[in-house]
Simulated assay, not measured.
Amino acid sequence: MEQAKSAGRIYLATVLMTLAGALINRLIYKGTGNYLLILIISQLLLIIPSVFYLVKQRKGLAETIGFRSISVGSIVLVIIFAYLIMPLMGLINAISMLFVNNDTTQVISNLVGKNGFLVSLVMVALVPCLMEESVYRGVLFQSYRQTSTLKGIFLSGFLFGLIHQNFNQFSYAFVMGVVFALVIEATGSILSTMIIHFIINSSSVMSLALQSRINGLAGTEAILDSAQKVDLGTTIIYMIPIAAISTLLAFFVFRVLADNSGRWEHVKSIFKERTKTHFLTPSLIIGMAICLIIMIIVEYQGRFSTGISKDEGFVTVIYGIIHGVQNFFF
Rank of each mutant, 00 (worst) to 15 (best):
Q146G: 06
R137Q: 08
L182R: 00
Y136E: 02
G320L: 13
V325C: 04
S226T: 14
V315H: 09
Y53T: 08
S202Q: 05
Q228G: 11
H278T: 15
I80M: 09
L77W: 04
R213V: 13
F141E: 03
I199G: 04
P241N: 05
G66L: 06
I240A: 09
E185I: 12
A227T: 12
N101T: 14
I308V: 15
P49Y: 08
F279A: 01
Q3L: 13
K310Q: 15
I199Y: 05
S309F: 06
I286S: 11
N25F: 04
T147C: 05
A289Q: 02
S42Y: 09
L284K: 02
L54F: 14
L257K: 00
G324I: 09
V55G: 04
E132R: 00
P241S: 06
G320K: 04
R137P: 04
V317P: 01
I41N: 03
L130G: 01
T105K: 13
S109L: 14
I214R: 08
Y319G: 11
D259A: 10
L257S: 01
I28L: 11
T220R: 11
H197S: 02
I286Y: 10
G262T: 03
L111C: 06
V127A: 12
T275Y: 07
I236A: 03
L217G: 12
E132G: 00
V112G: 00
I85S: 08
Q326V: 11
L232H: 06
G219H: 07
S74Q: 09
I70W: 04
D311M: 13
S226Q: 12
A13V: 11
R26A: 15
R213D: 14
L130K: 00
S204P: 07
T187R: 00
Q301S: 08
P241C: 06
V107D: 11
R137Y: 08
P128A: 06
I286Q: 06
T281W: 05
T234W: 14
L208I: 15
I108K: 05
I322A: 11
S261M: 07
L88E: 01
R263A: 09
F251R: 02
L91M: 10
Y300V: 14
Q228M: 14
L36D: 11
Q169T: 00
V124F: 12
I195R: 05
P282Y: 13
M176F: 15
V253K: 02
T275M: 06
E63N: 04
R58P: 00
S50A: 11
T104L: 08
M97L: 10
T235W: 11
Y29F: 15
I184H: 01
L162F: 09
G161K: 04
Y35R: 11
M239K: 11
K5L: 14
A20F: 13
P87E: 10
K276M: 12
L217P: 02
T277E: 13
V15D: 10
V119P: 01
N102E: 09
T64W: 06
V122Q: 03
G324P: 06
A94C: 04
I196P: 00
A209N: 13
Q43F: 08
T277N: 08
M194Y: 00
E265Y: 07
I41R: 01
V122E: 04
L54V: 10
L45K: 00
Q43A: 07
F67M: 13
V78R: 12
K114I: 05
R274E: 15
F141D: 03
I38F: 01
